[in-house]
Design a protein around this nucleic acid. Structure first.
Length: 495
DNA sequence: GTAGGGTTAG
């Protein structure tokens, strides 16, 4: 095949195969090449590493590093950047560090992309101070940050709760002549929605539409999702049709958003039609698309079809995730099959999945069939609980008129720093009142107030981990609050 | 080689 062709052409072939997930064919092409005397070089291996990290996992990518070393090909900065990106995808800060150390030991000098990835990794691990140190290092080494550096900063600041600072950085960059990219807009729109700032997010979306940029598939999917969450179904669907008409529905993402929303609102027939439309388009289905299908089947009461699909797809070698199992456990509970749900839950635990949501579904299912005491037993055995866990039990305890138990749960929930629906709080106080326990009701109302206040104060406590970040900022911005000045400061520090 | 979108429970 590569008779008279060079390694460069081999690399083009490998790149194209790896991009399209055809790793086995890429391996075969390398073997063909070797037979013809064309030896793979560092670029070949780097491409392979990227493909394996992306489609199989970090370990698979890392094993290529050994292979290339054995073949006498020395890794370069791109090799390590690809591996660090792979570690980052699996949220492994330690692996990222190890790789950085390894490359330094080999006297390979990190470049801007190494730092971008490292910064991203720190932000993802909830360490904004360390991430910022990496940004500092970029500036101190007189490396010019690129758009991705700023996008990573903006995204990371938002992710760690500094949205207003990210916004001011964004505005300052604009005034410094850095034109934002569509990605920057997408990051900010998504993060504003995520933090509940619906109007600000929509305002930025309008600004984007008025600018010279055109929203892309990612923008539309994001905006749609949050319209649905706010129950603006028609508005969400309008965006879906708009993106369809622009040819942006080239993958299953938007369909999964729409179907998810339709199923949540009980529009099962519409969801079914939408999935058929998706199938007609012939997109490649991944775990999320299959999960959406399984969810549809469960909501239609077709549990057998759901399990059949699970079986077929698993036999094809695709691995399902915690969503799949949670959807099935919820489906079983809703169908009243508590024993089946329990069995599936045990399987899920055995497989090592995070079972929090599935346990919440199970607790809810148990309450629905009147087994509140069993549900309470499960609750007590749970290491991790969230507001859903408490809420389910509180509502069902109220329904069973067990207000004192509900009140105990409510207080422990608030004290654990979790928010709980006001309607749940009112239900207990009113329940106690109406059952003649007026003193207890008044006492509970007071305790709720105190617990809420304590929680709010708790929010302003700066944890030990943040100290170095605070020190860094107070050193740079004097007496001003470090939180207030991040956006400006970062921009002023830029070349 | 880097950054941004989809699926679960009240």
């Amino acid at each position: 095949m590569f008779d008279k062709l060079s390694t460069k052409l081999l690399n083009i072939t490998i790149a194209s195969l790896c991009r399209t997930k055809q790793l086995e064919k890429a391996e075969a092409a390398i073997i063909d090449g070797i037979r013809l005397g064309i030896l793979p070089d560092v670029v070949t291996y780097n491409t392979l590493i990227t493909g394996y990290c992306r489609f199989v996992g970090f370990d698979a990518g890392y094993s290529i590093l050994h292979r290339m070393k054995q073949a006498g090909v020395n890794p370069d900065v791109v090799t390590y950047n690809s591996l660090m990106a792979g570690a980052n995808r699996e949220s492994s800060l330690f692996q990222c560090f190890d790789l950085l150390e390894e490359m330094l030991n080999m006297e390979i000098v990190p470049d801007l992309w190494s730092y971008n990835t490292l910064m991203h990794c720190f932000f993802r691990s909830g360490k904004p101070d360390e991430a910022y140190r990496v940004f500092h290092k970029i500036i101190l080494q007189s490396i010019s940050p690129c758009q991705t550096t700023y996008n990573t900063l903006i995204n990371g600041l938002c992710r760690n709760g500094y949205i207003s600072n990210a916004l001011s950085l964004f505005r300052n960059l604009q005034s410094y002549g850095y034109n934002p990219e569509i990605v920057t807009y997408n990051i900010l729109i998504n993060r504003l929605f995520k933090s509940g700032e619906f109007r600000s997010a929509m305002k930025l979306f309008d600004e984007l539409r008025d600018s010279s940029f055109v929203p892309n598939a990612i923008t539309y999917t994001t905006v749609m999702k949050y319209c649905f969450r706010r129950k603006y179904f028609n508005k969400g669907l309008e965006f879906f049709f708009e993106m369809k008409s622009r040819g942006y529905t080239y993958d299953a993402f938007a369909y999964c958003t729409v179907v998810g929303a339709l199923l949540k609102s009980g529009r099962i027939q519409d969801a079914n039609k939408c999935m058929s439309d998706m199938i007609k388009n012939g997109y490649e289905l991944d775990v999320v698309s299959y999960n959406t299908f399984i969810n549809l089947y469960c909501k239609e009461g077709r549990l057998e079809d759901a399990y059949q699909l699970l079986d077929t797809v698993e036999k094809e070698g695709l691995e399902f995730d915690k969503y799949t199992h949670t959807i099935l456990i919820d489906g079983l509970c809703k169908a009243g099959n508590i024993d089946g749900a329990k069995r599936h839950l045990n399987y899920m635990k055995m497989m090592g999945f995070d079972c929090l949501v599935a346990l919440n579904c199970f607790i809810n299912g148990l309450c629905e069939v009147g087994q509140i005491d069993y549900a309470l037993k499960i609750f007590q055995s749970m290491d991790v609980k969230d507001s859903f866990t408490y809420s389910s039990l509180i509502q069902n305890l109220c329904r069973a008129r067990r207000f004192h138990e509900a009140s105990k749960l409510l207080l422990s929930c608030i004290r654990a720093g979790m928010r709980i629906l006001r309607s749940d709080q009112r239900a207990i106080v009113n329940g106690l009142n109406l059952s003649g326990f007026r003193n207890d009701a008044a006492k509970l109302a007071m305790e709720i107030q105190t617990a809420n206040k304590t929680y709010l104060f708790g929010l302003f406590d700066i944890s030990k981990e943040d100290v170095s970040f605070c020190e860094l900022w107070s050193a740079r911005v004097g007496s001003r609050s470090y939180v207030e000045s991040i956006g400006e400061e970062l921009t002023n520090g830029c070349p």
